[in-house]
Design a binder for these strands. Structure first.
Lengths: 153, 153
DNA sequence: CAATGAAATTACGTTGTTGTGGTTACCCAA
DNA sequence: TTGGGTAACCACAACAACGTAATTTCATTG
């Protein structure tokens, strides 16, 4: 038996807390596509990676905060490049046109102090924690699998 | 001849930088209605106050920042009470469900530091300045009228 | 008072993001 | 190999937030 080879569409939607319709729509409209295995017709299966889960959760969080999906699309055009490793301590800051990833708290405070337009601040550490919690909650029944394994996807 | 008795619909839209359709839609759907004179049928005129202009500019700024109008409606349910006098130094902070007005910068920093969910920060001083600038720009031709008079509306 | 310009109203179309439900086609187990 | 389950796909409806273009009705000027 293989270890978790990623997350199915249905399980992904459950973990992230979105509807399957949303997951599907976002995939077909090129917002977030499954990086492990893309669909190629009816009957085929999508396979999402752990990083995909985090990105999807970011989308959901922004939507819950009242941001339009259209704006979320813009954010991800930028964020996809920067989103490398230690997201945990970073903050995503959206300023009208562009977006920034701040590593230290000081950077963030500077932005807030100088702030001219609207600032939108999203702590990524919290996002990751929530995803981890939901993974544990939904994978507990499926026997053997540690979080460490899950995140390596 | 009377001094500026408020702002007409068309002039208001120009000053704030929105379409007349938006102004109309927001009025008929009870987001922001003209406080000096409401419409009561075709041919009648709406009359907006200076405070109305600032509120409208807040709406536009939030829209430009990618916030859904539906969320803006929620914000104004709250903000309408607090929006009294010295807005200039205040910041509007939106946190998922509710909103807060911070007077000092320290309050704001605290919120950012503790921040769990998504924070949306809007400096109201800038808004007021922009409205003032546009009032001057559009009222210059209409002869006599100082900004002090305009703000007293 | 009548005409005219302007502003509110109405009507219809559009677009993006879903919900719902049916259809197709693959994957896997028996 | 052959079903059966399931996941992707498709079609349609709905809704909010407008754009655009008549159309009504007032306010004001001559």
């Amino acid at each position: 038996m293989q270890a978790e080879q990623g997350y199915s569409g249905k399980k992904t939607a459950e973990i992230v807390g979105i509807s399957y319709r949303q997951l599907d729509y976002w995939a077909t409209t090129d917002l977030i596509k499954p990086s492990l295995s893309k669909a190629h017709g009816s009957g085929t299966r999508r396979l999402y990676s752990y990083t995909d889960l985090v990105e999807l959760k970011v989308v959901k969080t922004l939507l819950d905060a009242g941001i339009k999906l259209e704006s979320v699309r813009d954010v991800f055009s930028f964020m996809r490049q920067q989103l490398g490793e230690d997201i945990s301590s970073a903050n995503l800051v959206i300023q009208g046109s562009g977006s920034v990833l701040t590593r230290s708290g000081d950077e963030l405070i500077d932005l807030v102090h100088n702030g001219q337009g609207v600032l939108n601040i999203l702590p990524l550490g919290t996002i990751k924690d929530e995803v981890d919690a939901q993974i544990v909650a939904f994978t507990s029944k499926s026997s053997e699998s540690t979080l460490a394994q899950a995140e390596s996807a």
